[in-house]
């Protein structure tokens, strides 16, 4: 492990260059750049209009420099209700998420990194049952792992829940 630690880590940007193609940020492709820019602007306007529609008629209702899209008392009531509801809900959610992350930190450090989190004897036993089952149906391990082309006959197909039932049968 320590040998690997001393190696130079891979540079993310080099790897990205190898696998990611983006015509928008490459040289050339003028047409792509033009229409994607236009589309981005158009759809940002589609975001801005409803935001203005709402804000101008509620929070900025007393500001004469803005055009007010609508003036309904019920609308403002609804807005201020949701306003309060979302602020409270967001605070509660933020607290839950932060506590969960801290709990996860603790869990990884104290449990996941220290001990195996599954029932190992049971898993090994199951592996053996599965191995025996596959050998009976498809041939031995050596053959299965090296055959280059294998045809599964219809009668060899696994039934629904077959493995699950096998475990149940063996663990009775």
């Amino acid at each position: 492990m320590s040998e690997k630690e001393t190696k130079q880590p891979l540079d993310k940007n080099d790897i990205m260059k190898q696998y990611v193609i983006d015509n928008y940020f490459d040289k050339g492709h003028l047409w792509t750049k033009v229409w994607q820019t236009v589309m981005a602007i158009v759809f940002w306007i589609c975001v801005a209009i409803p935001v203005y529609w709402t804000i101008s008629s509620t929070l900025l209702i007393n500001n004469q420099r803005f055009l007010h899209a609508w003036r309904y008392e019920e609308g403002r009531t609804l807005f201020y209700f949701f306003d309060r509801f979302f602020i409270i809900a967001f605070i509660i959610l933020a607290v839950i998420v932060i506590i969960s992350t801290i709990h996860n930190n603790h869990r990884v450090k104290q449990h996941v990194e220290k001990a195996i989190q599954y029932d190992e004897p049971k898993m090994l036993a199951r592996k053996q049952h599965l191995e025996a089952f596959y050998t009976a149906r498809f041939g031995n391990k050596e053959f299965r792992e090296n055959v280059r082309s294998y045809h599964v006959k219809p009668e060899q197909n696994l039934a629904v829940n077959e493995i699950h039932d096998l475990y149940k049968e063996e663990e009775k």
Partner: peptide
């Protein structure tokens, strides 16, 4: 409201993963 609450929870989750979570893998070796 659940789509908004869900989106917010997801957003907070990302922020926490980037800042509070301590077991991220950030370095990769050839």
């Amino acid at each position: 409201s659940y789509p908004i609450l869900g989106a917010f929870a997801w957003f907070m989750g990302v922020i926490c993963y980037q800042t509070v979570y301590r077991h991220r893998h950030t370095k990769f070796y050839e």
